[in-house]
């Protein structure tokens, strides 16, 4: 597929070893965003992170992305400590974060342009394929503001997939979308993930979304963010609308709700 070395078979894709993150704000006060967070993600596993606002979910993602250095412990990708942004990681943000002056296709190839100063013909072709894959084949030459919110977020996903990253980090990617588009995008993401397996870390506020997508769910507690529980979803794949009505779906959903909303959890 690529010339990149295939990662060692047994090594976890992502490993957090007692990671802590303390932010010091400009007035000197210290906020503990994460405390003693440990978990591992197997290669090509889909893991959702769920927890109340301000539990450090985004910080967790930023640490894996190499954008934030943890103040305690260590984060590893394929056994190597994360010291900065890595090639094999793609990020999808909460907002589509497209550049309004670029056409849709140029937005998808923007990472290459931005990093290397040029875009190869092969990359352009790949951008077109990705556009087809996310159902926007006819929109390559439109500007982002001519697209709906859901379409823009698809472009954001296609952009993250351009260099075929082995690890996909998604920070509440569908939270700005309406409920119907959200469901549609979830199934779309599952289809893409089945076609091209990847290790996905998916941050969300939505329990049904996490259940529909993930193999395992990391439930976090409020500030300081700690791992409260890691749940094996165990729902059969491929998942569909029927999955939503399975008894197990509701059992786990209720269980997570009880975890997240248990007394003191929202403090």
């Amino acid at each position: 597929m690529t010339t990149r070395m295939e990662p060692g078979g047994e090594r976890p894709a992502i490993r957090f070893d007692r990671v802590g993150q303390v932010f010091t704000s400009s007035d000197g006060s210290r906020v503990t965003a994460l405390e003693d967070v440990s978990f591992t993600l197997r290669r090509h596993e889909f893991v959702a992170v769920i927890g109340p606002s301000g539990c450090g979910k985004s910080t967790l993602l930023r640490i894996i992305a190499g954008l934030v250095r943890p103040t305690d412990g260590q984060a590893e990708i394929y056994g190597l400590p994360v010291t900065g942004p890595r090639e094999e990681v793609g990020i999808v943000f909460q907002q589509p974060t497209l550049l309004p002056w670029l056409k849709v296709r140029d937005n998808i190839t923007f990472p290459m342009k931005h990093k290397h100063g040029r875009v190869t013909a092969a990359e352009k072709e790949r951008a077109d394929q990705l556009l087809e894959m996310v159902g926007l084949g006819d929109f390559a030459h439109k500007r982002p503001d001519e697209l709906s919110g859901g379409m823009q977020q698809r472009v954001g996903i296609a952009r993250a997939l351009l260099h075929d990253p082995d690890i996909l980090l998604m920070d509440e990617p569908f939270s700005a979308l309406d409920a119907l588009t959200r469901d549609e995008m979830s199934f779309e993401l599952l289809r893409i993930w089945t076609e091209r397996p990847k290790t996905v870390l998916f941050i969300t506020h939505s329990i049904p979304e996490a259940l529909l997508l993930a193999d395992r769910i990391l439930v976090m507690s409020a500030r300081p963010g700690r791992v409260r529980e890691i749940i094996d979803v165990g729902l059969a794949r491929p998942r569909s609308m029927q999955t939503l009505s399975e008894p197990r779906f509701h059992d786990i959903a209720n269980h997570i709700r009880a975890q997240v909303f248990r007394p003191g959890a929202l403090a």
Partner: peptide, 23 residues
């Protein structure tokens, strides 16, 4: 400039100069 846009730039390992010029 949206902060996420600059994070994207940083996650790509692009230089500050490029971030100024491109974003």
């Amino acid at each position: 400039t949206p902060p996420a846009m600059l994070e994207l730039s940083r996650s790509l390992g692009a230089s500050r100069l490029r971030a100024v010029r491109d974003i």
